[in-house]
Amino acid sequence: MTRFDYVRPSTVAEAVGLLEAHGDDALAIAGGTATVLLLQKRMLRPELVVDLGGLPGLTGVEQNGGGLRIGALTPIRAIERDAIVRGTHHLLAEAASQVAGVRVRNAATVGGSVCFGEPQTDLPPALLAMNATATIAGSQGSRDVPLEEFFLGPYETAREQGEVLTHLSVPTPVPGSGGCHVKFTMGSPENKPVANVSALVTVDASTRALADVRIVMGAVGGVPMLAHKANDTLKGERPSDALIAQAAVRASEEADPVEDLRGSVWYKRRIIKVLVERALRCAIERAN
C-alpha cells in the first residue's frame, strides 16, 4: 500500500466536493472489499481516500412509488436478507446471495458493487434485468442514469470522478413476473463466475405467452449484456423446450466472452447456453 490521506466525509455534498477537487488523485471507497485489495497491491495509488461509509441516509431499502429505493451503502448481505426484497424483488435477493462469500457480502455494498464496474459479479446483471436506475449526485445536483447506460466497459461506468452514487431505484415487476439468477463457477460457488445469467420474464395470464423477457448475461463481455436476440426470440411466444433451447443458442452467440483463467471462448458460450436455459425455465416456473 502506498501512503495516502484519508477522509470520512459526513455529507454527500462534502464527499462530492472532495472527489471533484482531487480528481484522479482521489479514490472513493465504500465496503472496500475490492479496492483495498488493489491498494494493497499498489495497483491503485491515490493521494486521498474518501471513505463514503459515514454518509447518512444512504443505507437501507425502502418502498418508493412503484418500486424500491436501495441506498448505495446498503450491504449486499442486507439485500439478500431483506424481507421486502425477497418478496417483490426476489431476483435481486437471489443474485445478492450468490456474490462471493458471506464475509464479503457483509462488508461489500450495493453501490460499490455497481460502481466498481467489474464484469465478473452478480448484482449488476440482476439490476439490469430488473430495469434499475442509478441516481448519482454531483456538484450540479443529481442525475438519473438507467443501468443500461451506466456500464461503459470493464471497470468503467457513467459515474464521473466528482460524483457519488446515492441510490438505485428498482421497479417492482408487474404481476405474472418471475426472475431467476444462476451462475457457474469452477470450484466453490464463492468463486468468481465463469458466467452468470439473470432472467426476468412476464407471463401473460390468459395467453401463457411471454409478454416480456429480459435476459442479462454477465462475465461474458466488458459489461453485463442484455441478450437482445434471445429476448426477441421469446417475446410474444408461448415458451416450449425448443423455443428455450433456440433462445439459449442465440444468447450464446450474442455473448462476447474473452479467454481467461476461467475458460475459453468456446466454453463460456457453452456455459451461457446452459445458464440461459436454466434461468429461463426457473423464471417461467416462478412467473406461473
Binding site: 485489495l37 463457477t185 469452477m186 470450484g187 466453490s188 460457488p189 464463492e190 468463486n191 468468481k192 483463467l261
Partner: peptide, 27 residues
C-alpha cells in the same frame, strides 16, 4: 481445478486465490 498458469512472457497469471481455486466445503 488447481493449476498454476504462466502467460506467454513467463509471468504467473494465477497470483491470488481468486484466480487459483481451492477446495472448500462445497467440494
Amino acid at each position: 481445478f488447481e493449476r498454476l498458469v504462466w502467460g506467454d512472457g513467463g509471468q504467473l497469471m494465477t497470483t491470488t486465490l481468486m484466480d487459483y481455486p481451492l477446495p472448500t466445503l462445497h467440494t
